[in-house]
Design a binder for these strands. Structure first.
Lengths: 220, 220
DNA sequence: GTCTATAGGCTGATAGAC
DNA sequence: GTCTATCAGCCTATAGAC
C-alpha cells in the first residue's frame, strides 16, 4: 500500500505529519473550526505544503477520512471469516473499535462530526465504507440469532447502539478532561477508564442480547 | 419565565425565529460552519438583529444551548422525585431524552458537537447543567442497585452508554437520510424509526442491567 | 519539495437613518 | 426594533524563487 509520488527516500514525512496534526485538530474543532496555518504549524511544515500534497484543506481532510476507514475496515474483515460464536465476535467487534479509537484518537470525533452533518465532506463514493462497518455487525447479529444465542434483535438497532455508545465515549473524553480540570465532578465520581467502559459495553450487550433463558425482571 | 425587554406586544418573535433557525443550522454544520447571514435569511429577519438581540453570533449560540439544557433538566427533575421502581424510571429517562430530541431536533447534534470539543463555546458556569443530566441517571441506577433490581453497575458507565447511544441515534439521522437518497442501503435494510430505537434501548438496558436471576449464556 | 509574498474573497460586526 | 451600507480582519490558495 505505497503512496504515489515517492521519488526520494523521504517517506512522505511531511504528508504524514500534516495528516496526524490535522486529524487531531479536525477532531476537536471540526473542518471549519481549523485554520490551515494552524495545521501547518502543528505539523512543523509550511502552509503551502497542504495544497501541494493534498490539493487543499478539503483534500487533506478527505485523505484522513479515507485512511481512517480503510484501517478500520481492514481490521474488521477478519471478523467476518472467524468461526467463533456470535457473542464472542461481538465482544471482539467492540474491542476493535475501542483499540482503534485509542490508536487513532481523532477517529471517533471525526466520524461523529461527519455523520452528524450527513457526510458534508464525503463524496458518495465514501458511503460504502461507512456501511461496511454496519455490515460487519449485521453479519454477527444475524449469525447469533440464527444460532439461537441472541434473541431476535434488529441488526441496525444493535449496530447503532453499540457504535453510538462507543464513539460517543471516546469522542467525549475532552469534556471529561475539562470537568476534572474545572473541579466540577461530584464527590467520589471519577472519569472511567477506556478499559472499564469496553468491559461494561461488552457485558451489557452480551446480557441484553442473550436469548430468553429467563424472563426479564420487571415489566410495566 | 418571561424574557426581559418587552415593551410592545411583540413577543420576541424575532428572537425566537433566530434561535430556531440557528439551532437547526448549528446542529448540522457546527458553530464555525454557519454564517450569520444564513441564519438571518432562514429566520426571515435582518442580519443585524443577531447582534442586537444576542450581542453576536456566539451569544445566539449560547442562548440556544442554555434553553436546551434548561428544558431538558426541568423535564428530568420529576424523575428524581418519582417513587416508581428504578427500571421503570430508566425507561422513562430514555423516553424523555428521545421525545426532547424529536421536539428539538437540533438538540442531539449541538450537544454532541459541544461535548466533543470539550465545551469550546461554554463558560464553566454551564458545566453543571451537563452534569445534572448525569446526576439524574446516577440517582436511578443507585436506587436500582440498592433495591436489588440492578446488578452492581457503575452509574457513569451506564449513563454514558445510554445517553451516547440515544443522542448518536438522533443526531445521525441526516446520514441515514442521505444513504436512502443515494440508494446505498443494502437490500431489505431500512432506517429504523425513533420509536423502534427507543424500545430497543429500553429493552437492552433493562435486560443488560438486571440483577443476576440467571447466568449469562456464553463466556470465553 | 519547500518557502515567501500576495491576491482575492468572504465574514462578523456596527454606525446611523428610520 | 429594524434595516442599509460599509469596513477591517481574516482565511485559503497560488505564483514563482530556490
Amino acid at each position: 500500500m505505497a503512496r504515489r509520488t515517492r521519488r526520494t527516500h523521504n517517506t512522505g514525512a511531511t504528508r504524514e505529519a500534516l495528516m496526524t496534526a490535522a486529524a487531531d485538530l479536525f477532531a476537536g474543532r471540526g473542518f471549519d473550526g481549523v485554520r490551515v496555518e494552524q495545521i501547518a504549524r502543528r505539523a512543523g511544515v509550511n502552509k503551502a505544503m497542504i495544497s501541494y500534497h493534498f490539493g487543499g484543506k478539503l483534500g487533506l481532510y478527505r485523505a484522513i477520512l479515507v485512511d481512517l476507514f480503510a484501517g478500520m475496515n481492514t481490521e474488521l474483515e477478519a471478523l467476518g471469516r472467524s468461526p467463533a460464536p456470535a457473542d464472542e465476535l461481538l465482544r471482539e467487534f467492540v474491542g476493535i473499535i475501542a483499540s482503534r479509537s485509542r490508536s487513532h484518537p481523532g477517529f471517533p470525533a471525526m466520524l461523529i462530526r461527519e455523520v452528524i452533518s450527513g457526510g458534508q465532506h464525503m463524496a458518495d463514493s465514501m458511503l460504502p465504507r461507512i456501511l461496511s462497518v454496519f455490515q460487519s455487525v449485521r453479519g454477527i447479529v444475524e449469525k447469533g440469532v440464527r444460532e439461537g444465542t441472541f434473541r431476535a434483535v434488529d441488526p441496525i438497532l444493535t449496530h447503532l447502539t453499540i457504535i453510538g455508545s462507543l464513539v460517543f465515549f471516546f469522542a467525549t473524553d475532552p469534556m471529561r478532561v475539562r470537568m476534572v480540570k474545572a473541579g466540577m465532578l461530584p464527590e467520589g465520581v471519577k472519569p472511567p477508564s477506556p478499559e472499564a467502559f469496553v468491559i461494561h459495553i461488552q457485558e451489557l450487550v452480551a446480557r441484553g442480547l442473550a436469548a430468553e433463558t429467563a424472563p426479564v425482571p420487571t415489566r410495566r
